[in-house]
């Protein structure tokens, strides 16, 4: 089982109803990943771990990604009649993408020496439907990393044995790794500010110092 298409077919055959998508990657690495629907994610992950030809027994990395709402622009070639002549005109098509949060798992097989296989799980939105199934029961090593994603991104992992904040304190309400996080403003004393810090420090300058 070598290509991602084969892995996708294998998982879809083993888990009826599972919907997997291959997410392309146009960066130089070209590392594609599998997107799985939340309802069947746990069953698909079990297959990835237990299938004798895959045996992805090692979860090397779990991380979160925040995708805020965005307007995507795409150039589309459209045939149009301009002054009686049919011409191909480029038009900019704008589509709105709803925001969501993503958990990304990197799996390797220590037994068969292959990998990584990248699995992505997506939440419905970024506000109230942020639940994903936890894969900690399958890979114990994911426990702290899922807690970290819960802490910094705010994804709630159902089925996690001990879901608490791990880096910030329990009373903390924000999710610092989200793109719209606003950090506390403690830039009162900046002797050598530059760039972003300069902008933040300017609001603290007193009138007589502003020369």
């Amino acid at each position: 089982m070598e290509t991602l298409e084969q892995i996708k077919a294998c998982a879809e055959a083993a888990v009826p109803g599972a919907r997997l998508d291959i997410i392309p990657n146009d960066s130089p690495s070209g590392q594609r990943s599998l997107l799985v629907d939340n309802a069947h994610a746990f069953a698909v992950a079990t297959i990835l771990r237990d299938d004798p030809q895959l045996r992805l027994d090692y979860c090397s990395n779990v991380t979160g990604v925040d995708w805020p709402e965005a307007e995507l622009t795409e150039k589309v070639k459209v045939k149009k009649v301009v002054d009686g002549v049919e011409k191909e005109v480029e038009e900019v098509k704008k589509t709105k993408r709803a925001g969501y949060l993503e958990a990304v798992y990197h799996f390797y097989s220590m037994a068969l020496k292959h990998g990584p296989v990248i699995l992505r799980l997506r939440t419905v939105n970024r506000t109230d439907q942020v639940h994903l199934p936890s894969l900690t029961p399958l890979w114990r090593g994911a426990e702290f990393q899922e807690r970290e994603i819960f802490d910094l991104y705010g994804i709630v992992f159902d089925g996690h044995p001990d879901l608490r904040r791990i880096l910030m304190w329990d009373e903390f309400k924000d999710f610092p790794m989200r793109k719209d996080y606003v950090e506390p403003d403690d830039y009162e004393y900046e002797p050598t500010p530059h760039d972003d810090v300069l902008e933040k420090a300017k609001s603290h300058r007193t009138a007589e110092v502003k020369t």
């Binding site: 304190w169 329990d170 009373e171 903390f172 309400k173 924000d174 506390p184 403690d186 009162e188 004393y189 002797p191 603290h204 007193t206 110092v209």
Partner: peptide, 19 residues
Amino acid sequence: FGEHDLVPPSNPSVWKPAV
């Protein structure tokens, strides 16, 4: 431990930002 930062963020009787 506050909801967004430590409360208070500094102790004004000990520390004042240098001008």
